[in-house]
Nucleic acid binder design. Structure first.
Lengths: 225, 225
DNA sequence: GCTAGTTTTCTTACATGTATAGAAACTTAC
DNA sequence: GTAAGTTTCTATACATGTAAGAAAACTAGC
């Protein structure tokens, strides 16, 4: 049983492709042809390798997409100059910035359920939100929970909205939702029945910032002072 | 060109399988062996048919999963008896009920991004929320937007949480998040660095209801009175 | 040089969702 | 009865993610 003697530099076959090259090429494919055209086979040929070789650099396709999103966020998120003086406005600005960048990312649905947002530049915005909540009188624990609430709200808004947009794009039939809302029983569901004709346009409105302000108001009420 | 003469009953080859039978069988497979074992081929053989025959009853596998979720929600959602007298409590009760049932559904991630929740029994809860918000003084439009904010928050919480739980279950390596939080720069991100050691347990806590109350407080502040 | 060990790459194979084309089984009109 | 039309089902085929294992290309120790 030979001892594995701590290799000083690099043992083994030298790598011909790198994670960075994979991400760079995948990013180009996505921006040129859309996320649907990003296949492991095509990516492999475009980096001059074979599909299975990619799997030594990314765990699976989902991890690749998360890395792509981080890369995208790093390039798209720009810090506000100067940051607002009021901590409440700093929080709102940071959350809206994250929201707008993610909502503009067409392949977001495949990825966003995967994990927190953790790119280097995104973390700065997280810091702004946590710090702003703390500056408003919340404890650090409360601030973390508050940030998570904002993140849940943001991710949910983006996902629900992106999915229904995609569904409309790939299907011109009336949606299941439309059919359900057309057949509501006014006796059982009076409010829904009354608003049913306006449900689609109402829920198509962008109310992210309005909801975010409400959530933030409620979170700040938790502060002792 | 023969006129298609309005068929009185049913023309064409009679169906051997029904949408109901498909959903029933799929539901059994999922409850017995998990959602990963639900394949169109297996489902087809278990209903005594072929894979492509299923596609005359459901558009694709995603729609099948949405139908499964609706079926599950219909069987799992129970109305509170009696409903709380206070409208604010009615809203909270309804939202928490939806949340808890969905969060307990293991295959939720595959489906929840698909659409609103529209099963018959779920709609009753939506009605409760919209009605409660209206009773608290919001206009009907504001109430719909308020419901949507609650839905975004709820869906986001469930999705983010379910995904990270699944990731922990299928992978024992330290997560990407752990590695990022271990290497934060205290000068750049002071609050995050300070809370980093406690980030994992803090974000593992169930704070759904707490966040929901904050959001609801903020939404009700929008009421004119 | 040679051997063992390590890391990366390549080959092959399989399970899966589903597109496509056409056959089968019915109803209606004649 | 036959023919046309309609709906459902079947057979075949393909693109995709990726598991399994062998092969390749290196380093370290002799």
């Amino acid at each position: 049983m030979p001892q594995p003697p701590a290799p000083r530099r690099t043992a083994g076959r030298p790598a011909r492709i790198s994670r960075e090259e994979i991400i760079r090429t995948a990013s180009r494919i996505v921006s040129e042809d859309g996320v649907d055209r990003l296949t492991m086979r095509r990516l492999a040929t475009e980096v001059g390798s074979t599909p299975m070789a990619l799997y030594h650099h990314v765990r699976d396709k989902e991890e690749l997409l998360v890395l792509l999103l981080d890369d995208y966020a790093d390039r798209s998120l720009h810090r506000p100059e100067p940051p607002p003086a009021d901590p409440r406005e700093r929080i709102l600005t940071a959350a809206v910035a994250i929201h707008d960048v993610l909502a503009a990312c067409p392949w977001i649905v495949e990825v966003l359920t995967a994990d927190d947002l953790l790119s280097a530049s995104a973390l700065w915005f997280v810091e702004q939100i946590v710090a702003g909540l703390a500056d408003c009188g919340l404890t650090l624990e409360q601030a973390v929970h508050g940030y998570r609430a904002i993140w849940y709200f943001t991710a949910g808004e983006i996902l629900v909205r992106a999915t229904s947009a995609r569904r409309r794009a790939t299907d011109d039939r009336p949606t299941y939702r439309d059919r359900v809302f057309a057949g509501l029983d006014p006796a059982e569901l009076p409010h829904l029945s009354r608003i049913a004709p306006r449900w689609a346009p109402l829920t198509a409105q962008d109310t992210y910032e309005q909801g975010l302000r409400a959530l933030l108001d409620g979170l700040l009420d938790q502060a002792p002072g």
